[in-house]
């Protein structure tokens, strides 16, 4: 409960204040002096010590990219973008990092726009928006209790419509968040197999930095103990088993 109250206060403050602490500054200095792998480690410490801000993920992504780890860079840009989905720098660098992988599942402009507007708000912003819309609807209904006229009728009608749209959107995002488990391929070149067995031949290969969706299925090779996870490629609509350590989850 206490945690939630803190979150709510921070949500109100978030857009106005900028902070910097020692760990963050030290990591930035390492980056500026060109020691990218050290900087990446320092950003990692900043994040694991509880300051999981978008800027730290973004800077970590930059350090990874400069260190020629495209997969990790994309992973951290994706994480940063989940927190601040409208940040142009993150989008630009993510696009830049993606340009290194030869992804044949290209997006057209319309799909890009849809995906962009779908992810325009963070889930938390959507939560606040939903609450506000709900409060508005209740307010309209209360108004109608006292003034039962044509104006209040249309007011309630309009606000209900707005609320319904937001509810649908919110529901879809929550469902998405609950069901989908996106992950990034962080190993150099990964072979996906049709069964979770080391001896199976590769069914398809995945480039480093490719976004996949983990299905809930996990298994391991009975002989070697190698852990496998089943992944779904949405663009290509194929499934395969890859070793668990070649993936990193975005969530």
């Amino acid at each position: 409960m206490n945690q939630t109250a803190k979150i709510l206060i921070l949500l109100l403050l978030s857009s106005f204040t900028a902070f910097a602490d020692q760990g963050f500054d030290a990591a930035n200095k390492l980056y500026e002096s060109g020691e990218y792998s050290e900087a990446a480690a320092a950003y990692g410490t900043v994040i694991s010590s509880g300051n999981a801000c978008a800027e730290a993920y973004y800077n970590l992504g930059n350090a990874c990219l400069k260190d020629k780890k495209v997969g990790l860079a994309i992973l951290n840009y994706e994480k940063a973008l989940r927190i601040t989905p409208r940040d142009a720098d993150i989008k630009y660098n993510l696009e830049f990092a993606r340009s290194f992988i030869k992804d044949n599942a290209g997006e057209d402009a319309a799909a890009k726009f849809l995906a962009g507007s779908y992810g325009f708000l963070t889930l938390n912003e959507l939560c606040v928006l939903f609450s506000a819309a709900f409060a508005l609807l209740m307010g309209a209904l209360i108004f109608r209790v006292y003034r039962k006229n044509e104006f209040s009728y249309w007011l309630v009608f309009g606000v209900s419509l707005l609320f319904a749209i937001i509810l649908l959107f919110f529901g879809a995002r929550i469902r998405d968040n609950e069901i989908n488990n996106p992950a990034i391929v962080v190993a150099l070149s990964v072979e996906a197999k049709s069964e979770p067995k080391d001896s199976n031949p590769a069914a398809f290969t995945l480039p480093e930095g490719k976004k996949v969706f983990l299905t809930s299925r996990r298994d391991f090779d009975k002989k070697t103990g190698q852990k496998y996870a089943e992944v779904l490629l949405k663009g290509e609509n194929i499934k395969g088993w890859v070793t668990l350590d070649s993936l990193a989850e975005i969530k």
């Binding site: 979150i7 978030s14 857009s15 902070f19 968040n177």
Partner: peptide, 17 residues
């Protein structure tokens, strides 16, 4: 790529409201 960010803002991080 674009340059790193010098300071950060407190955000909700990845906690879900």
């Amino acid at each position: 790529i674009r340059f790193i960010k010098p300071a950060y803002r407190y955000t909700l991080g990845r906690a879900l409201l």
